[in-house]
């Protein structure tokens, strides 16, 4: 089958040079018990206007990856050991940290999971949003306030002109996340990194926030890296997905291609773990066991002890992230038995 023909055109011009290109990034954390490699030789590209979803469970390394991209790996325990983070033609890791710092806000911005701990509780939200304009754009107090109201309106905070003088605790969880998004977008960044932006929110509010991110992304032609544990949540907005397990990328490709042709047993196990909203209620077929201790990784493939396809080859060597046979070039999986997994999925 001609793989590239499976996907419908997305209606976007073909991406040229990626805005962000990460190569072989490795992040380690020193703990009392030893050094753990939270992110292990991860590479990724994000084109202008594109949304990449980074998916994984607890301990997969997805958040450490986001921290590394923003230059926020908490030292001295954590550090970027090797790799390159190429942003718009500049290797950020080769430059002093102040360089990345300067890009934050105007080029790169981040939205975190817990908006309450990311906002200053004793400052009015208008002041916090406006501060960006005062510091980075030299705006006057009045001008910053006006800009703050404008942004709050844009992210859907009702009665923005009144609420601009409220404190963070006076906002609901969903509204606080809107404030965070307003701050992240204040200086019109070209790349937004959203780390579990809706995890703490109710499902109806989660839908509002995802809608808002999708609208803003389209409006600004912004690139988005969406970090999540929820395979369903990202399906509505992401162009491509990247699944992580124990610090490694296990599968990546166009979202629809990956979700329809699962090529890694882990991705397949995750998908089978989600109870459906329609169709017959069947017994779930979860992945057995639990994720490995990063201090005591199994030899060869890290997923091996939980994998039904595992053979001697999986014990002997760690699989590389390679194009899935019979699939498009962009669909890659790190599994010695990817072909078998795909074939098994088609027959089952």
């Amino acid at each position: 089958m001609d793989g590239t023909a499976i996907l419908p055109a997305t209606g976007r011009p073909a991406p040229s040079r990626p805005l962000l290109s990460v190569q072989d990034l490795t992040v380690q954390f020193g703990t009392r018990a030893g050094t753990i490699t939270a992110v292990d030789r991860v590479s990724l590209d994000v084109a202008e206007g594109e949304t990449l979803a980074v998916l994984g469970e607890t301990g997969s390394g997805k958040s450490a990856l986001a921290q590394a991209l923003m230059g926020l790996v908490p030292g001295p325990a954590g550090r970027v050991v090797s790799g390159r983070i190429n942003y718009d033609g500049t290797d950020l890791l080769a430059r002093p940290r102040s360089y990345t710092r300067r890009l934050c806000g105007t080029e790169l911005a981040m939205v975190f999971q817990d908006p309450l701990s990311s906002l200053n509780p004793v400052l009015r939200v208008g002041v916090q949003i406006g501060e960006l304009f005062r510091r980075r754009r030299g705006a006057s107090r009045a001008e910053a306030r006006r800009k703050a109201i404008e942004l709050m309106e844009r992210v859907g905070i009702p009665a923005a002109a009144r609420r601009v003088d409220d404190y963070p605790h006076q906002f609901s969880g969903g509204m606080r996340q809107r404030v965070m998004i307003a701050m992240a977008l204040a200086l019109r960044p070209r790349l937004l990194i959203a780390d579990e932006p809706t995890t703490a929110l109710d499902v109806t509010v989660q839908a509002q926030i995802m809608q808002l991110l999708a609208d803003l992304k389209a409006e600004h032609r912004m690139s988005l890296i969406l970090i999540s544990h929820d395979l369903g949540l990202v399906a509505g907005v992401a162009d491509r997905v990247m699944l992580m397990y124990a610090g490694r990328v296990v599968e990546t490709g166009e979202l629809r291609e990956v979700y329809q042709t699962l090529a890694h047993p882990y991705t397949r196990g995750l998908m089978a773990s989600i109870p459906g909203l329609a169709g017959p209620r069947e017994r779930l077929t979860p992945i057995t066991g639990s994720p490995p201790d990063l201090l005591r990784l199994p030899s060869g493939c890290r997923f091996r002890p939980r994998c039904g396809f595992a053979t001697e080859a999986c014990r002997a060597s760690q699989p590389d992230l390679l194009p899935v046979p019979t699939g498009p070039e962009s669909h890659r999986a790190a599994c010695h038995h990817a072909e078998e997994v795909v074939a098994d999925g088609r027959s089952g």
């Binding site: 929820d230 399906a235 509505g236 909203l277």
Partner: peptide, 20 residues
């Protein structure tokens, strides 16, 4: 119900979309 994210939205084209 409409707010629940589903992994393959294209497989359920008749799902209602209500964003409260």
């Amino acid at each position: 119900l409409s707010a629940v994210p589903v992994p393959r939205p294209w497989a359920a084209p008749h799902r209602q979309q209500v964003v409260l």
